[in-house]
Nucleic acid binder design. Structure first.
Lengths: 148, 148
DNA sequence: CTACAACCTCAACCATAGTTAAGGTCAAGA
DNA sequence: TCTTGACCTTAACTATGGTTGAGGTTGTAG
């Protein structure tokens, strides 16, 4: 195996250096998330830039962004390497998505804690029942959780 | 169809009143998350208590708790209906799980925003690269995202 | 008493994110 | 040159959380 001071990496080197298994790199390649070229013997070779790309993919995943969405974002910024400005765009977008996700979890937690406080499970005041609940339209007061 | 003032609900009534599709109720039943009995003609019948149980399941799901975990929690508190005290236990546990989830997302967001600020993608200072990164052990300073 | 909506089971299928196995090829060191 | 680890492909399998369809049954209203 080549010593890793090279610009060109084998799939195994990418795996070791990025921390993702070879199978996942194959998978990402099938999904179009990463790309490289082949040797005459059909083996994968990558520019070491791929490590940055994989790092970005993993960060996005930690933020809960699906791979398909990550791909769209990365495809829109097709230059390689991704510039600092593009990274700023990306990270701002993902930060915003993260914030939405956080907000909705915080809201749920606060509602949950409100319910702990009241201990009643009464969904007359309790907002935990999901918002698109159809019960109101049925005109029945008997649908409160507390009476169910 | 019986008018819904009954204590006993058909699967369709449960679906309408809980807001989840019939197929999902079947699925939950297969998974042991909900239970009822059968008519002589093999049709499902449920006590309206099931609506409370389904509401709790959906709340847990919103909090990101897998069905298998929800089942364990509910099985431990096997009384039916679930009491206010048990609900408090449950919601406290889930609230704690939620808080952990929120904390890790907030941490990620802050790191992401730090990176937006510095705009450098330098992973020397940037904590975004995942913590179990193997690079340090390879003793190479060339592995920073910025130089990859 | 018949029609029709609602119900039943079972199996297959969907998406997401990969992992694993089988069977075969490549490449680098001794 | 040979051995061996790293590589290749394809297909099937994992888990989660369901949905869909086919083909058959039940139950209630008229």
């Amino acid at each position: 195996m080549a010593i890793t001071s090279e610009q060109v990496l084998t799939v195994g080197e990418v795996a070791r250096r990025s921390g993702v298994p070879v199978s996942t790199i194959h998978f990402y390649e099938r999904k179009g998330l990463v790309a490289g070229w082949r040797t005459s013997g059909n083996q994968r070779r990558y520019h070491r830039r791929i490590l940055r790309r994989i790092a970005i993919i993993r960060i996005a995943q930690r933020a809960g962004i699906p791979l398909a969405t990550v791909k769209k974002h990365l495809d829109k910024r097709a230059t390689e390497p991704i510039t600092a400005a593009q990274w700023r765009e990306l990270s701002e977008a993902w930060s915003a998505e993260l914030n939405e996700r956080i907000d909705s979890l915080v809201q749920l937690r606060d509602q949950l804690e409100g319910c702990i406080g009241c201990g009643c499970l009464s969904l007359a005041e309790c907002p935990l029942r999901n918002p698109e609940d159809e019960l109101a339209r049925q005109g029945s007061g008997a649908h409160l959780l507390v009476s169910e």
